Simulated assay, not measured.
Amino acid sequence: MSGTETRVVLREALSVTTQRLGRAGVASPSVDARALIAEAAGTARPLILLDVLPDGFAAQLEQLTARRERREPLQLILGRAPFRRLMLRVREGVFIPRPETELALELLREHASGPLENLVDLCTGSGALAASALDEIPAARVLAVEIDPRAADLAVENLEAAGPGRGRVLRADLTADPAGPALAELAAAGPVDAILSNPPYIPPEAVPRDAEVLEHDPHRALFGGGEDGLAVPRAVISWAARLLRPGGVLIMEHADVQGPAARDAAARIGGFEQVSTAVDLTGRDRFLVARRAAGDPTPGSERLTR
């Protein structure tokens, strides 16, 4: 097949695949079609530069397209997801990193006071925030905490790829008894310079509409517990109050309607100052930013809510 013939095949493939994905309800059919075609062609180069297609291209593209038509997330089909400067490994059964979460690293740089050498990522999932911190802050060492074994195993891979030897993953339930042995390692980690977290926070009645989310993101990574979805986020705030050094900062993602409740939780738990809500790139409330108060004694385990 000549280069001209290859480009004819690619144009037809792009047209047909885009139409199929559009009919299936995929939000970005042309973008996804290009990604699937590149995957089937085994290339990271622009499609226009391809002169030769591998044997089995058509069959491979058909298989990939059929999976996306069934609304399997593109990231799972490709086995990877971009996050800031990294290309993270993703896997079925583990929460897929979202672009809006990337802003947490910018907020960390903006609000940090003093060095960023010891960090904790609570509810790390695939390890996206922890891995990005290792990648972008060369002096940092990161402890990532995750309850789900599949997610924890994946986080180990992503952290080691981003910062060999500088990150570790702890399997633990943040809402468990803080005095129990499972959380002893986390309790011993403080004082730390910063805590990042993208915990589950969806209220029980707010069922996601997108098939990609509802059918492929694990519910444990979506629903935060309690009537307002903030049971796990409150546990994150409590651990931040316990672990942060004076002046250390918590950056925690939440739903766009949970800003007031998250600030109220930080105030009730205590030990913080300069508590505020940061917006995402669309102007929606998205992150709790709370600085550990200087001179305030570290809250005891009795403040760690379940």
Rank of each mutant, 00 (worst) to 15 (best):
D173W: 00
R109M: 03
T298C: 14
V31M: 12
L159M: 08
G270N: 11
L36W: 01
E253L: 03
S238G: 15
R68A: 05
P99M: 06
E72R: 14
R91A: 13
T6C: 14
A13H: 02
R80Y: 03
A240M: 04
G42D: 02
E102W: 03
D256V: 02
A189E: 11
R306K: 12
E160Y: 11
E69L: 08
V236C: 09
L281C: 03
R71E: 04
L86I: 12
P191Q: 02
G22F: 07
G295N: 12
A262P: 10
D148E: 11
G229L: 01
Y201S: 06
P178A: 01
L119S: 13
V257E: 07
A278C: 07
V192C: 09
R166W: 11
A179L: 03
L88E: 04
E117W: 03
A41P: 07
T18G: 00
A161E: 02
I269R: 05
R171N: 05
A187W: 07
V90C: 07
P233M: 09
R71N: 07
A240Y: 01
A81E: 15
G283H: 04
R71T: 10
A35V: 06
V16C: 00
E136G: 13
G225P: 00
G271A: 13
V236K: 05
A128C: 14
V52K: 14
E100M: 02
T124H: 05
R23Q: 12
R11M: 06
R80M: 05
A294Y: 13
N198P: 06
S126L: 10
L50F: 04
S2V: 03
V94L: 12
L49T: 15
P138V: 12
V8A: 08
R34G: 10
N158A: 05
P181S: 10
S15V: 08
D177A: 08
A189Q: 07
L53M: 03
E5S: 14
V232P: 09
H219L: 12
A66R: 14
L108H: 08
A262K: 10
Q258Y: 04
R284H: 09
T282V: 05
M87P: 00
A211M: 06
E69A: 08
L14A: 13
E92T: 13
L122R: 11
N118G: 12
P208F: 07
P191V: 08
T298A: 15
L116I: 13
E69T: 13
L103M: 08
L64M: 09
A104Q: 05
S113I: 01
